[in-house]
Amino acid sequence: MKTAEDIFKILKDKFGDAVLEFKNDKPVDPFIIVDPLEVDKICLFLHDDSDLLCDSLMNLSGVDDANGEKIKSATSGEHEISIINGGTLSVWYHIESTKLKHKVTLKTSTPREKPEVVTVTDVWKCAAWHEREAFDLYGIVFLNHPDLRRILMPYDWEFGFPLRKDYKNPEFYQGMKVPY
């Protein structure tokens, strides 16, 4: 069993600049920030190394950090529509070793304008649908993903990614009125 700090040191020695930072701000669980284009190699190492043996990806989720510049473009009715320029979208990985009983959290951030993260489906098959969901709701593109389609929204949904902070719902979809 290893602590998050131990795992960070092992990763830092192995991958150098691809492992960016270790955060341990209580009361949040400690997490490791990594490079979005190296995350597949880091995860493969976490999975295979005999001291780590992280065999289970418990969860993979997307986050809109909303840390860009907010531009108020218009007001329609009661709602202000703002567009966010710049900033990042993030992907979080909650990883566990069921053999060695340790857990680790990875975070990777990618620019909002061109969000690209390398897939980890080659390491854990279960990541495929989690990544499809993050793509569906945040528009994060997972490079080398075997089947990157929408998973929850309709396949022909062309109004953007619903969980982004500057998302605006359409008036109509397939002839059906969407707002209340």
Binding site: L152, M153, P162, N169, M176, K177, V178, P179, Y180
Partner: peptide, 20 residues
């Protein structure tokens, strides 16, 4: 009937099946 708890923020919910 009307979208229920999803009436305001349910981007994916039809607000009442009587619309179709």
């Amino acid at each position: 009937n009307c979208g229920g708890p999803y009436w305001e923020h349910g981007y994916h919910v039809l607000k009442g099946v009587d619309r179709v």
